Simulated scan of single mutants.
Amino acid sequence: MRLPPHILVVNGIKVRRPVFLLGAPHSGADLVARALKRSPGFHVTMGRACVSHVLYAFARKPSIGRGPGATRVLRDALAESWQVLRGSCGQCPEPCREAGGVTGLGPCVATNTVTRFGDASPDLLYSAPVLQQAFPDARFVQLIRDGRDVAVDMLADPECLAWFKPVMLSEGTEFPNPFLGVNRDEHVERWKGMPVAGKAALRWRSAVRLSATLRRDLPADQLLTLRYEDLALRPAQAVATLSEFVETRVSKVALYGRRLPKVGAWRTGLRPDDAGLVEKVARQELTRLGYLSS
């Protein structure tokens, strides 16, 4: 009998309750992915090209993600990413291999040990509605971090900075554009002339708004929101909460053994003008989330 369309089989294993880690850039999704990758039964991928190409296509042109074939395209990409083959880890970016403790080409897991799948590809957040349709039983963990600290790390990340080049908003760009945080085409010229700290604030602001939408639309048993600050300052409590949510014993060592960027790094990492711009652009969200006094 043919399996229902929402059941995906990878390596002979039915994909049930996959876990997807979401958040603005540098909000801590990679840290949680590191913990899950080292937890019993989990096979978590991060940034495989087959997935990233689809995610960025959906992010830059949202109408593609609303098309009839979007669900199948993303499911197929994830199925390819989750395949456990000889040398498969050689196709993973360095952060994924490092998180899994892989020194060669892999694979990082054995198929007979895998019971759960997950993905923490950068900017997965922008495909969350498609993931909901593709995997109705999925679990989502979204990470929230102070937008000012996020801006510090984004300004030091060449990959993030590459998205802020004026060419990224071309004539074919759709609006509103959550990925870059630009809502209308008449705002394009203003965006092009904005300092990069302001563009980082726009990306963070848009991401946390999407996170708020997910919190409103998804039932509590499918969505967990974690704060980066809790991961950094109270890792045992954060891991206990995560373990209960995903119904798996999550490794604490992955968090304890890693040096995390400091909470409040923006105080020394942002120039006063940049800090003021980030607070101006994202004031409403910073205030709503408790990072800025009203």
Rank of each mutant, 00 (worst) to 15 (best):
A29D: 02
A29V: 07
D30A: 15
L31Q: 04
A33V: 08
A35V: 01
L36A: 07
L36Q: 00
L36G: 03
R38D: 11
P40K: 02
G41I: 08
G41C: 08
G41M: 06
V44G: 06
T45A: 11
M46F: 12
R48N: 15
C50F: 00
C50Q: 07
V51I: 12
S52L: 13
H53P: 13
Y56S: 09
A59C: 07
R66W: 03
R66E: 09
R66V: 14
G67I: 07
A70G: 01
T71K: 06
T71L: 06
L74N: 02
A77I: 11
A77C: 15
S81W: 00
W82H: 11
Q83P: 06
V84L: 09
V84M: 14
L85G: 10
L85V: 15
R86Q: 15
G87H: 05
G87D: 05
S88L: 10
C89D: 11
G90S: 14
Q91F: 14
C92Y: 03
C92S: 12
C92F: 09
P93R: 14
E94Y: 13
P95I: 07
C96Q: 06
C96W: 01
E98Q: 13
A99C: 12
G104T: 10
G106N: 09
P107E: 15
P107I: 15
C108S: 12
V109L: 15
N112Y: 12
R116N: 07
F117I: 00
P122D: 05
D123L: 14
L124Y: 10
L125A: 02
S127M: 09
A128M: 07
V130S: 09
L131H: 03
Q132G: 13
Q133T: 10
P136G: 05
A138V: 01
A138D: 06
R139P: 02
R139D: 05
F140Q: 00
I144R: 00
G147H: 00
